[in-house]
Simulated assay, not measured.
Amino acid sequence: MRSISTREIFIHFSILTIGLLLLNYPEFDLSIGVFNSGNGSLLWPSITGTIINMGVFYSISFYLIPEVLRKRGIIVFVIQLVILFLLLSFIEVITDLAFIGETKDHSETLSEIIITVSIFNMLFVMLALAYRFSKDWFINEKQRISMGEWKALNELNTLKNQINPHFLFNSLNSLFSMSLQSGDDRTAEGIRKLSEMMRYVFDKANLEKVALSDEIQYIEDYIYLQKLRFEDSVIVETDFSGINENSSIAPMILIPFIENSFKYGVNSTEKNKIICKLSCEKKQLSVYISNKIVDHIEPVPSSGIGFLNVKKRLELIYPDQHNLNIYQKNGLFVVELKISL
């Protein structure tokens, strides 16, 4: 849920304060329902009414629309909206009735209070709907423009760096040498996987979204080629579960974390272990990657995207829909990522 900023709170508070002062200015002699500013009977009903009205406003703006309407559907939203409206209106009617005893100049009726309360609460319902939808529109438009500018500035570099040419050349050279020496099935499989990786990058890297299964296949192929390169010096423990064709993700957004594990977690002079786990449940993708922090002897060429770039992409593509946690613990470098797809 997108929270309200300090600046917005100040603006809202200022508007409410000014509005209450104007409503209760005795010289205006304003009457709202059964209460009047000229005799002072409007003061406390207007204060308690404003508090309740703002309860309607903020409940709709920051709970019902982002948490109920967008996640549970319009039917549940309407039901909860009606319950909220009736409950707060009832409280306001009871509160106003408590102030009638202090009012000497009118013979007020319950129906007048109900009508007045309903009108004001309905007004704040419409204000809340207009505020929330316009706020989200401006935020989304700003993000769309920012995303367009970012893509325009980085498109060429991204295309060039999705797979580092050195990685391709090194992999091809390794596979070629292996084919000369042994000609076994592993070599043919490695060449096939490298071909599929190249096809994936050239065909799909520029798309906004790709099937999650395709992205994971790319990761599996990358891991396979790196295991060929390092042979017995690296053990990769993978666990991919809950993946289905209906889930999609921004392309090449996970691979920098895998590359980092090989770049900083593999030393050909010792045994190394990398853990890569991905699970998807109810459109919630969970990623866990860990590697031992080893002495940096031989760097592994990477895609060139890097953590800063991928963090920026996550912020632009999945605002308020992801949680990235990178830390070191007990000699391990750990990446934990959750994305609402």
Rank of each mutant, 00 (worst) to 15 (best):
M1C: 08
I4C: 15
F10N: 11
L16H: 03
L16S: 14
T17M: 15
G19S: 15
L21S: 15
L22D: 14
E27V: 08
E27P: 15
F28P: 09
S31A: 13
S31Y: 13
F35M: 03
N39Q: 10
N39W: 05
S41G: 00
L42V: 14
L42P: 05
P45N: 13
S46D: 04
T48P: 09
T48F: 11
T48E: 13
G49C: 03
V56K: 07
F57R: 00
F57M: 04
P66S: 10
R70D: 09
G73M: 10
I74E: 08
V76P: 05
V76H: 12
V78H: 09
I79V: 08
L81P: 01
V82E: 13
V82F: 08
I91H: 08
V93W: 02
I94K: 00
A98G: 04
F99G: 00
E108D: 12
L110F: 01
E112C: 10
I113F: 03
I113Y: 11
I115Y: 12
I115V: 14
L123F: 14
L123S: 03
F124E: 03
M126N: 14
L129V: 11
L129C: 04
E141P: 03
K142F: 05
L153P: 09
N154D: 09
I163Y: 01
P165I: 06
N170S: 05
N173P: 06
L175T: 01
F176Q: 08
S177V: 10
S179L: 11
G183A: 09
D184N: 10
D185L: 13
G190M: 10
G190H: 02
K193M: 00
L194W: 01
S195L: 05
V201A: 05
E208F: 06
K209S: 10
K209E: 02
V210T: 10
D221N: 13
Y222S: 09
I223V: 14
D232L: 04
I243N: 07
I243W: 01
E245A: 09
S248V: 13
F257P: 00
I258M: 05
N260L: 02
G265C: 04
G265Q: 01
E270Y: 00
K271F: 01
K273V: 00
I275Y: 06
S279D: 00
C280E: 03
E281I: 02
Q284K: 12
S286F: 14
N291Q: 02
D295T: 04
E298Q: 06
P299M: 02
V300F: 14
P301N: 06
R313W: 08
L314G: 04
L316N: 08
P319K: 08
P319Y: 08
D320W: 06
I326P: 04
K329E: 15
K329H: 15
G331T: 12
F333M: 13
V334T: 13
V335C: 09
V335R: 07
V335S: 14
L337D: 01
